[in-house]
């Protein structure tokens, strides 16, 4: 009885249906744990967590330099949004580095990327933690102050993509957006 102490010996090896279920469940657990290393080597979507320490003002400086050198235009937000009414559009060289800042409350700058090219996107936050959430693809990564989080990203579809913030960052959180254009 589940509520009373056990006085008879209770050590029994599993048998019958129970043994079958434990065996099958164990095999399934192995399949699931092997899927991750398999995907790490053979799959194309991985989060390796590549990151470097960086002071927020140093990261801002790198981003500003990146914007000055590579700026190709200006994005005027068609949605009434005082927090990101205007952003510079910046195009990194194919295979090159791009910088993306999350701060209260915008993703800066807007990026223009070429389909099929691979970029190293440096992602960081200046004030609080922010959540990089690329829509409508629904790819999500964490942006943390003090960490230069490098995403080696290859856009494979053209179009206009919106970055929303999915880590709570204060009263303007819901309206914190940014842009990635893929041509």
């Amino acid at each position: 009885m589940s509520l009373r102490p056990l006085t008879a010996p209770w050590f029994h090896a599993p048998a019958g249906h129970e043994k079958l279920w434990i065996g099958v469940a164990l095999v399934w657990c192995f399949v699931m744990s092997l899927m991750m290393p398999y995907w790490h080597f053979r799959g194309k979507q991985n989060s390796t967590g590549e990151a470097y320490t960086v002071k927020p003002d140093a990261f801002l400086e790198r981003t500003q330099k990146f914007v000055e050198t590579n700026r190709v235009g200006t994005f005027k937000n068609p949605i009434a949004n005082a927090l990101a009414a205007e952003l510079p559009i910046v195009e990194p060289p194919p295979g090159g580095d791009a910088y993306l800042i999350g701060r209260m409350w915008q993703w800066y700058p807007a990026l223009r990327l070429r389909v099929g090219e691979t970029y190293r996107i440096h992602l960081s936050a200046l004030d609080l933690q922010h959540g990089f959430s690329l829509q409508p693809l629904n790819m999500n990564f964490q942006a943390v102050p003090g960490y230069d989080h490098v995403l080696t990203l290859t856009p494979t579809s053209k179009g206009e993509y919106t970055i929303v913030c999915n880590e709570f960052c204060g009263i303007g959180h819901h309206a914190m957006t940014g842009k990635i254009f893929v041509e």
Binding site: M35, M36, H40, S47, N138, N140, F141, N166
Partner: peptide, 12 residues
């Protein structure tokens, strides 16, 4: 909670 699948789920 699968490492890679979390990319399409984290904080949503």
């Amino acid at each position: 909670g699968t490492q890679q699948i979390n990319i399409i789920a984290h904080n949503t």
